[in-house]
Computed example of a mutant assay.
Amino acid sequence: MSPLPWFPGKRALAAAALASAVVVTTAQPAAAAPRIVIDTDFPDPDVLAVDGTYYAYATNSGDDNVQVASAGAVDGTWERQGDALPQLGDWARSGLTWAPDVSERPDGSYLLYYTARDTASDRQCIGTAVSDSPAGPFAPVGDGPLVCPAEAGGAIDAASFTDTDGSTYLLYKNDGNAVGADTWLYLQRVSADGLTLEGDPVRLLKQDRPEEGGLIEAPTLVARGGSYVLLYSAGFYGDGSYFTGYATAPALTGPYTKSDTPLLTTEETGIPGPGGQDVVGDGTDDWLVFHGVLSEEPLVRGMYVAPLHWAGDVPSVG
Rank of each mutant, 00 (worst) to 15 (best):
residue 3 P to S: 08
residue 4 L to D: 03
residue 5 P to A: 15
residue 6 W to V: 11
residue 7 F to K: 03
residue 9 G to S: 06
residue 14 A to K: 07
residue 18 L to W: 11
residue 25 T to G: 08
residue 28 Q to K: 15
residue 37 V to K: 06
residue 38 I to D: 06
residue 40 T to L: 11
residue 43 P to F: 12
residue 45 P to H: 10
residue 49 A to F: 07
residue 51 D to L: 03
residue 52 G to F: 14
residue 57 Y to K: 04
residue 59 T to W: 13
residue 62 G to V: 10
residue 74 V to G: 01
residue 75 D to E: 13
residue 75 D to T: 08
residue 79 E to T: 15
residue 82 G to V: 09
residue 84 A to Q: 02
residue 91 W to P: 00
residue 96 L to K: 10
residue 101 D to P: 02
residue 105 R to F: 11
residue 117 R to D: 12
residue 130 V to N: 02
residue 130 V to P: 01
residue 139 A to F: 08
residue 139 A to E: 15
residue 148 C to D: 12
residue 151 E to Y: 04
residue 155 A to H: 01
residue 157 D to R: 00
residue 158 A to W: 12
residue 160 S to K: 06
residue 166 G to V: 14
residue 170 L to H: 01
residue 177 N to W: 14
residue 181 A to E: 15
residue 184 W to M: 00
residue 187 L to I: 08
residue 189 R to Q: 15
residue 201 P to A: 10
residue 202 V to H: 12
residue 213 G to V: 03
residue 218 A to E: 03
residue 219 P to C: 06
residue 220 T to F: 07
residue 222 V to W: 01
residue 225 G to L: 13
residue 231 L to Y: 12
residue 231 L to R: 00
residue 236 F to E: 14
residue 240 G to Q: 00
residue 241 S to Y: 05
residue 244 T to E: 10
residue 247 A to L: 09
residue 248 T to A: 07
residue 257 T to S: 15
residue 257 T to M: 08
residue 258 K to I: 09
residue 258 K to F: 08
residue 261 T to H: 10
residue 263 L to K: 01
residue 263 L to C: 04
residue 264 L to R: 00
residue 265 T to M: 05
residue 265 T to F: 05
residue 265 T to E: 05
residue 268 E to V: 07
residue 271 I to T: 00
residue 271 I to Q: 00
residue 274 P to R: 12
residue 278 D to L: 02
residue 279 V to T: 06
residue 289 V to E: 01
residue 291 H to W: 06
residue 291 H to D: 07
residue 294 L to K: 01
residue 296 E to M: 03
residue 298 P to I: 10
residue 301 R to I: 03
residue 302 G to N: 09
residue 306 A to Q: 02
residue 308 L to C: 07
residue 309 H to R: 15
residue 310 W to I: 05
residue 311 A to C: 05
residue 313 D to M: 06
residue 314 V to N: 07
residue 317 V to D: 05
residue 318 G to F: 09
